[in-house]
């Protein structure tokens, strides 16, 4: 059959007001999740390099479990599975934020671990030799340097997590992809709508890349 397809610009433009309603959800899930994920990443990343086994092992288990299973399975588990356990429903937005938080938290833990371990041992020796406690040495000498090195991989993780939220259409959060699916159900303009959806993701991730590059440049200038 000869394809008669022609890109319908009008249909694409018409879909924008409806699709754009998904952006706040996409951003809310991404950045809400990433914020909590960052906190989890610091906590579990630091625990995973602790010498005490009862701190190290649980942290390592958390990291391996959430890195080693698909985020789609994780969010389905949280949304459909967890209510059985806690005896009440979880709203899709909360489930989405929780999934991004737990999943990015595992990856950010590894970023934190790598960042901290990349700092030369001489730095902590210098701090300790000056009389600083281990805690003081860590927070005023190691962490600021490690954090600077963590910025590029953290940015990378943020972009991955933003894209991961697209999977959450399956639990019915009104994010970008979900809005697109709903719109297509009544207009049958799949090509145009998914094209606009893709452009919107790109707009978000490119803005983030740009901001990160500026932050990085500023951070490196002083080292």
């Amino acid at each position: 059959m000869e394809s008669q397809f022609q890109f319908d610009w009008q249909a694409a433009i018409n879909s924008i007001p409806f699709l754009i309603k998904g952006i706040p959800y996409t951003l809310m899930i991404s950045f809400g999740g990433l914020l909590i994920g960052f906190a989890l990443g610091i906590i579990f990343g630091l625990l995973s390099i602790n010498k005490k086994w009862f701190l190290k092992w649980p942290a390592t288990a958390y990291i391996e479990i959430f890195r080693g299973t698909p985020i789609l399975v994780q969010v389905l588990f949280i949304f459909y599975g967890l209510p059985d356990l806690i005896g009440g429903p979880i709203d899709p937005l909360t489930a989405g934020i929780a999934a991004i938080a737990l999943n990015s938290g595992a990856y950010i833990s590894e970023v934190v671990r790598g960042g901290v371990q990349s700092i030369d041992k001489g730095q902590s020796e210098a701090g300790l030799s000056l009389g600083l406690s281990r805690t003081q040495t860590f927070w005023s000498i190691i962490w600021p340097q490690a954090f600077r090195r963590m910025i590029p991989p953290l940015g990378n993780q943020a972009i991955v997590s933003i894209k991961d939220t697209s999977l959450f259409s399956v639990i019915g959060v009104g994010e970008l992809v979900r809005q697109g699916q709903v719109y297509i159900a009544s207009t049958f303009t799949a090509f145009e709508v998914y094209f606009v959806v893709a452009v919107m993701y790109l707009a978000i991730t490119l803005s983030l890349s740009l901001i990160l590059r500026l932050v990085e440049r500023r951070g490196l200038a002083s080292v």
Partner: peptide, 12 residues
Amino acid sequence: GMVFQQFNLFPH
């Protein structure tokens, strides 16, 4: 006080 071979100044 201690002075190291590699200085170990705080670069930040």
